[in-house]
Measured scan of single mutants.
Amino acid sequence: KVKIAGPGLGSGVRARVLQSFTVDSSKAGLAPLEVRVLGPRGLVEPVNVVDNGDGTHTVTYTPSQEGPYMVSVKYADEEIPRSPFKVKVL
């Protein structure tokens, strides 16, 4: 029921550039959304989540370095389908 889309989860994500993606939970009811961005060697990146007021949230983060990242998206305390997402930061 929760959908996710945006360039911040795709290929070609650049280090030190603001990345974003949208989480659409409009068909999933009200529940807490939790997003974690883990970088190389367990680095935890700050994440900004904005409630758009229409059942969607815009998530932004800036990867601080190149390497493999994991983006975990939980809704109602459960990983959404395909989460955690593997993101290769260049």
Rank of each mutant, 00 (worst) to 15 (best):
K1V: 05
K1G: 05
V2N: 03
V2P: 00
K3S: 13
K3P: 02
K3E: 09
I4Y: 04
I4H: 02
G6D: 05
G6F: 06
G6K: 03
P7V: 06
P7R: 07
P7S: 10
G8A: 03
G8D: 04
L9Q: 02
L9S: 03
G10V: 07
G10Y: 05
S11T: 14
S11C: 08
S11L: 10
S11I: 14
G12A: 14
G12W: 10
G12V: 12
V13W: 02
V13L: 06
V13N: 04
V13F: 04
R14P: 05
R14M: 14
R14L: 10
A15G: 03
A15V: 13
A15E: 09
R16Y: 07
V17W: 05
V17R: 08
V17F: 07
L18C: 12
L18F: 05
L18D: 08
L18K: 11
Q19A: 08
S20G: 05
F21W: 01
F21Y: 00
F21E: 00
T22H: 11
T22W: 07
T22L: 10
T22N: 07
V23M: 04
V23S: 01
V23K: 01
D24V: 03
D24E: 04
S25F: 08
S26T: 09
S26R: 11
S26N: 06
K27W: 05
K27S: 14
A28Y: 02
A28P: 05
A28H: 03
A28E: 04
A28S: 09
G29H: 10
G29Y: 08
G29A: 10
L30R: 14
L30K: 14
L30F: 14
L30M: 15
L30G: 13
A31C: 10
A31R: 06
A31H: 06
A31V: 03
A31N: 06
A31G: 15
A31T: 03
P32E: 14
P32R: 12
P32V: 09
P32G: 09
L33D: 02
L33P: 11
L33E: 03
L33V: 11
L33T: 03
L33I: 10
E34R: 12
E34C: 14
E34T: 15
E34H: 15
E34S: 13
E34A: 14
V35R: 00
R36P: 00
R36T: 14
R36L: 09
V37F: 00
V37E: 01
L38T: 15
L38E: 13
L38C: 14
L38S: 13
G39C: 05
G39S: 11
P40R: 04
P40Y: 01
P40L: 03
P40C: 04
P40E: 07
R41K: 14
G42H: 10
L43V: 15
L43D: 11
L43P: 06
L43G: 11
V44F: 11
V44H: 15
E45R: 04
E45A: 07
E45Q: 07
P46Y: 07
P46K: 11
V47Q: 04
V47K: 02
N48A: 10
N48Y: 11
V49L: 11
V49F: 06
V49C: 12
V50R: 11
V50C: 11
D51L: 10
D51R: 10
D51W: 11
D51C: 12
D51E: 12
D51T: 12
N52G: 07
N52L: 08
N52P: 01
N52A: 09
N52T: 05
G53C: 13
G53P: 09
G53D: 11
G53N: 13
G53Q: 12
D54V: 05
D54E: 08
G55R: 12
G55I: 03
G55E: 06
G55S: 10
G55T: 05
T56K: 11
H57M: 05
H57V: 05
T58H: 13
T58V: 12
T58Y: 13
T58C: 09
T58S: 09
V59T: 03
V59R: 00
V59D: 02
T60S: 11
T60G: 06
T60W: 10
Y61D: 00
Y61G: 01
Y61M: 00
Y61Q: 00
T62V: 10
T62P: 02
T62L: 09
T62A: 04
T62G: 01
P63S: 01
P63A: 04
P63G: 01
S64W: 09
S64L: 10
S64G: 09
Q65E: 13
Q65W: 06
E66N: 08
E66D: 14
G67M: 01
G67V: 02
P68H: 15
P68M: 14
P68V: 15
P68R: 14
Y69A: 02
Y69L: 09
Y69Q: 03
Y69F: 06
M70A: 12
M70P: 00
M70D: 10
M70I: 11
V71Y: 02
V71L: 07
V71N: 00
V71G: 00
S72Y: 10
S72G: 07
S72T: 09
V73P: 01
V73R: 00
V73Q: 01
V73G: 00
V73F: 00
K74W: 11
K74I: 07
Y75I: 07
Y75W: 12
Y75V: 11
A76S: 10
A76P: 02
A76D: 11
D77G: 14
D77K: 08
D77I: 00
D77S: 10
E78I: 10
E79A: 06
E79L: 05
E79N: 12
E79I: 05
E79K: 06
I80P: 02
I80E: 02
I80T: 04
P81F: 04
P81A: 08
P81Q: 07
R82H: 14
R82Y: 15
R82V: 08
R82I: 06
R82T: 11
R82M: 15
R82F: 11
S83D: 02
S83A: 05
P84G: 01
F85H: 06
F85P: 01
K86A: 14
K86E: 15
K86I: 13
V87E: 02
V87A: 03
V87H: 02
V87W: 02
V87S: 01
K88P: 13
K88C: 14
K88L: 12
V89T: 06
V89R: 02
V89F: 03
V89G: 04
V89S: 12
V89A: 15
V89K: 00
L90F: 07
L90D: 15
L90A: 15
L90K: 13
L90G: 15
